[in-house]
Amino acid sequence: MSDQATTHEKYYVPEKSSMAVFATIGLIMSTFGAATAMNQATFGDGEASFTTMYIGLCIFAAVLFSWFRITIKENLAGMNSVQLKKSYVIGMFWFIFSEVMFFAAFFGALFYVRTLSGPWLAGEGEGGAWNHLLWEGFQYSWPMMQTPQEAVGGVSNQVMANMGTFTSAHKSMAFAEVDAWYKWLPMWNTIILLTSSGTVHIAHEGLLSGNKSRFNLWLGITVGLGVIFVGLQMLEYYEAYAHFGLTLNSGVYGSTFFMLTGFHGFHVLMGTFMLGVQLVRSLKAGHFTSDDHFGFEASSWYWHFVDVVWVGLFLFVYIL
């Protein structure tokens, strides 16, 4: 029972905390504000006002800042037992798992459209019996360069009601120009993100061996790579909208493309920010030792997760 005694030293339970209530105010203001603004933009005739949402987000950010600050202080004060730290590890693991399942919903939608409902719309298989009544002339291909709506000649010729017009892109994001392969941004993004998983690992090794300057250097490189990735992704979106005609309105190809890459890009931004915070903590406050660096470790797990999602994206959104 000797090891039981060490893992069951006193578990720190904070007496009380006002952060939950303020976080709730921030969260509810931002969601309510977002809903109101979206409704004003879509259904209303007035100008959409995002003020409530922005105030809510500011409150929320401030609460998160102080929440993490308090947690870090408690840890530095030695209040966190081995057992408590394990709770954080478990919490982070299952949080990442929930994120995986969030992406699974969108990947699932992509696979469903590509293997089942897309061909059915074009009249193939058991599901295609109504093609000649609804979407006569629609041919399925992926990337989908002509929506069923366009195939029948626009909204006015359409049997089904819908949410507006869907205009296809004239160029997809798939790999096309063999001669100019070096201009294909997704390839560079893949190289950057895979490299960054390696650099964050080198940083971790450096920390484990007690080499803080190596840690800082390679963590800094990782953050830099993250920023470059987000920059290239923004460039790609600009190209899509400005030159390819690929928008959120481009039918289901545009929907899946932007939602998958968009949520991934947002997660990269989050991960870069998280790693950046750890870098600042290490540089400015001298945090992290070789045996106590969970803030960094959790951020690096998150980073690896974002990397794995990108590999799935690269395969199923860009290549296959």
Partner: peptide, 12 residues
């Protein structure tokens, strides 16, 4: 303007 659930845009 996405069309996940709209057949006119290729969704379902």
């Amino acid at each position: 303007g996405t069309s996940f659930f709209s057949a006119a845009g290729g969704g379902d």
